[in-house]
Nucleic acid binder design. Structure first.
Lengths: 356, 356
DNA sequence: AGCTTACAATAAAACGTTTCACCAGAATTT
DNA sequence: AAATTCTGGTGAAACGTTTTATTGTAAGCT
């Protein structure tokens, strides 16, 4: 009747009539245990519903089998997907994951990183809030760190990111090829390396089309206002290309609010594909980032580091895919009839670009 | 030069010239320690960059300050948002969270729940995969469990969910009031309690309009096919109401694929609002579930349970909001001119319905 | 039979922390 | 001045494991 506490290895040992060490040996699959004893132990484990205490186990064995994951925002579908994939992969390798979100806040990220140390993870995968990540990493951090997606200002980190320049360039070249005379490129801030690389990719790719950059900041009401003002001014640019997730949402909403129709009034393309972009009509042309692959590579790299592989920091850039859809019709002069969904896939290159 | 290991409380004690117990006392804010000693300890802590080992701390103190969270799918924005809010709240109460996703798989959920026990959490918040959750909870589970969102078949659980019936009824009444003659209601499966409650809410709310239910299953290619077949048949229903997240995505895509336009060909409404529904034109009429509030209530309840509050299981139903947008125009016979974004909010009732 | 090897099981130490019981000295009371 | 209480600090035990060293026993060899 009295709520007996959660069963410990000691209780299992007593019940099975063996020593604590034997139970541990059975549970950890040590070969030096007779079938008879193993059976008795397993039986006791089942009867008591015993499961190991990870804290105690890790404390003694000094094998962590635990990795930390820090992302800027779980509600961003891309990061959610990243985490979900990581979780799956880690499980396959028998690792546990501690996941925290920085809620788009650099200070909170710093705090989370500090707190992370208390878990004594064997390694860390971080998508940093911004480029200044290095300053927030607790000094004397002991475990290997693999960065993903966002590019840090400081060198010296393992990094798995995407091929921003060429991917953005492909979109720009596509728009250029469609005959648009000018393109408004919108991004949160060029101080974010990802955005800067994309903008540079655009400039490098266009030959004829005129491009113009507009930075609207993060949560910068002023910037949003500037965007709206630009979109109300005439003449409109022929096309609009937004370079990051938040900007895309804001831009798309603003266009709808002031009654601009895509693609009749202007063409629209986005870096960072979202689910709805293939649902709406017309579909939105977008750069699809290889989130799953990014998670796979990040995990594989971290696993190598955790199991002792030293060596210079690795940077790997993954190839994005470009989905051409109805928001940037093949020829803006032709009829804008019903656009078929799905669009065609345009592969950038056969092999991912990897500067190392 | 030799990579000294990560600092322990022992090293801090040595450095500060005090005992281990004193360091612990300082770190845990015990009042019985002189300012001088406290200063020395804090200095040593800072110099060494010491942070406590949570595993060891929890092991000894037997205070967990740790809660587990199990959700069916992190890539579902609603659940991601749920987790993100929980994480924030837990932090305010100085709790850590271990978050795992079941990846929409009941077996994986069972596995995750088993594994969860190893963490020795003080409590658990679970959004179950399906109604059969009770069977998957490891028997003799020790810690309090609060369920959220999905309603279990078995009674006896604390539960925070939404007011499915009235919310779905409000949509149905709205459609009815617009003069649509018939409405096709689509959901994954009536064996899911949420979906069943919504369907029953629809039936209870309509007076004139004819309603018809179509179950398309989860990952049921056959079901998707039946949906497409129905949407190709004439006459079309005047309106379509989809009852859950997956179904909404599938339905919306199917409509676009076969060239049906909303709301010209048929009106469309959805349970489970998503971000893009207010971005697209026309906006999608949808039931918005109070995710943040659900997380708040779940956390508050779990916290009470974890700190020893006994008592009968509590069920609380939270009020949803209904966002009427352009996909279900006020009068389908009037001109379907430019629809203003945002829509109006229709509050169901002033006070949340709470059967307890 | 004696001697070594191999095997199966165990007792005890260790992991890093918190807590408990205790102690020396100072401060207060008698 | 002796007796008591308070104060700030400490050694050691304990938490639930894994691991190491050790034991006892059976088997294999001359």
């Amino acid at each position: 009747m009295s709520r007996s506490r959660t069963p410990s290895i000691k209780m299992v040992a007593d019940r099975a009539g063996v020593s604590v060490a034997t139970v541990s040996n059975v549970l950890n699959g040590k070969p030096t245990v007779s079938p008879d004893f193993a059976r008795r132990v397993n039986e006791a484990v089942r009867e008591l519903g015993y499961v190991v205490d990870l804290g105690a186990s890790r404390l003694r064995s000094r094998k962590a089998h635990l990795a930390g994951v820090v992302v800027p925002d779980l509600t961003n579908p891309m990061f959610a997907s990243f985490v979900s994939t990581l979780e799956h992969l880690a499980r396959l390798d028998d690792y546990d994951l501690v996941v925290v979100s920085a809620r788009n806040n650099a200070e909170e990220e710093a705090d989370r990183l500090r707190k992370m140390r208390s878990w004594r993870p064997a390694g860390l995968i971080v998508i940093p809030c911004d480029g200044a990540f290095a300053e927030r990493l607790p000094n004397g951090f002991f475990a290997p760190v693999v960065l993903a997606d966002r590019i840090p200002d400081a060198a010296g980190f393992d990094l798995i990111a995407v091929d921003n320049g060429p991917a953005a360039g492909a979109i720009a070249a596509h728009l250029d090829g469609q005959g648009y005379g000018d393109c408004l490129v919108v991004g949160s801030s060029l101080s974010i390396t990802n955005v800067r690389e994309r903008w540079e990719g655009v400039r490098a790719a266009v030959s004829r089309m005129h491009v113009e950059m507009l930075e609207i900041g993060i949560d910068d009401a002023n910037g949003a206002q500037r965007l709206e003002e630009r979109l109300r001014r005439r003449p409109l640019p022929g096309a609009l290309f937004s370079l990051d997730h938040g900007t895309t949402l804001l831009t798309y909403r603003t266009m709808a609010e002031i009654g601009l129709s895509v693609p009749d009034d202007l063409a629209f393309a986005s870096f960072d594909e979202m689910e709805w972009m293939r649902l709406v009509a017309p579909g939105i042309t977008a750069v699809r980032q290889p989130v799953e692959e990014m998670a796979e590579q990040a995990w594989a790299l971290l696993l190598r580091r955790m199991t002792g592989s030293a060596g210079k920091p690795v940077t790997r850039r993954l190839r994005c895919a470009v989905e051409i859809r109805g928001s940037t019709p093949r020829s803006p002069l032709e009829e804008a009839g019903p656009v078929k969904l799905g669009g065609e896939k345009w592969k950038l290159q056969d092999e991912p670009y990897s500067p190392e």
